[in-house]
Amino acid sequence: MRISDASPISPAGARIAAAAALVLLLCVPLVVRDIYRLDLGITVLIWASLATAWNISGGFAGGLSLGHAAFFGVGAYTSTLLFLRLGITPWIGIFAGAVLAAMLGALLGVITFRLKGPFFVLATLAFGIVVHIINVNWRGLTRGAAGLLLPFRGGPQNMLFLNLWAYWYTGLGLLVLTVGVSMGIERSRLGYYLVALREDEDAARSLGVRVVRSKVIAAAVSAALAACAGSVYAAFIQYIDPDSTTQFELSVQIALVAIVGGMGTTFGPVLGAAIVIPLGEMLRARLGGGAALVVYGFLLMVIVLTAPNGAIAGVRLLVRRLRRLIDSRRKADA
């Protein structure tokens, strides 16, 4: 089950780099004026959050979920329906969605904690499909395949903005939230327990690590954060339907982003979104949807076969080499 060589504590350098990156990201709307690029950037932020959420249960705890679109959908639909039906602002709805998703995630965690490898994957896949089928067929609630349109009512107090830069900051807030939670877990007792369980469950249990509790908390937190991403997505796109929220392909893509970036690390999934989403856009524009997905499939295969630790492992190697180079220069100078 060994997935990454990452110790739960990421190097201090990574944190400094993250702080610097955050400052840069805060400045983006001041520099990037191109609407298309900013739009893509917001999509990257949402996907980075979603993959980070997946990584908490998928990467740290090693439970490869193929059903996370369900939680994304629960978030998107909860905040949207509360807004449409009861006039409750998505700023509150996002929490309602997160709580609902956390409960669902905990339930899924309780029923699947015993399952290993492919059995776990298939159970989460089936769970995702059940949610999708309900979403498509419970027309009284979700309007099924027709989807839900968010009317532009009220503005900022309802998470609806006229300016893209406002969505950028909302998306960035979401990313800071998910990455913050992820970092917090990585450096906590829970983080140690999850990684220990992933590396060897029997050894972890014999050392006093409680399996159910740890895995269920991870599943609930992961689901709640995915739901937050769903609510922000709904407010950003202002139209949701089953295909764009709960479809199986979406679950695959969530996992794919985290894997390409480097699962089991805090910044891997973020890096993954920064690579996969723009690449996907570019391929779609150049080659069309089908051919873009051919490349996707190929990429997925090649990455898991040749570099299962993802792009972040390459970055780390590079940083280490650079550091050594600088050190040796310094010595040579002295």
């Binding site: 060994r2 060589d5 739960p8 007792r189 327990y193 990684v195 050894a203 690590v209 089991g264």
Partner: peptide, 18 residues
């Protein structure tokens, strides 16, 4: 059954945490 991906120290930290 070591936690293969963790450092030796972190392996032992898990025990101390519980």
């Amino acid at each position: 059954k070591p936690f293969g991906g963790l450092t030796v120290l972190d392996n032992v930290v898990v025990g101390a945490l519980t």
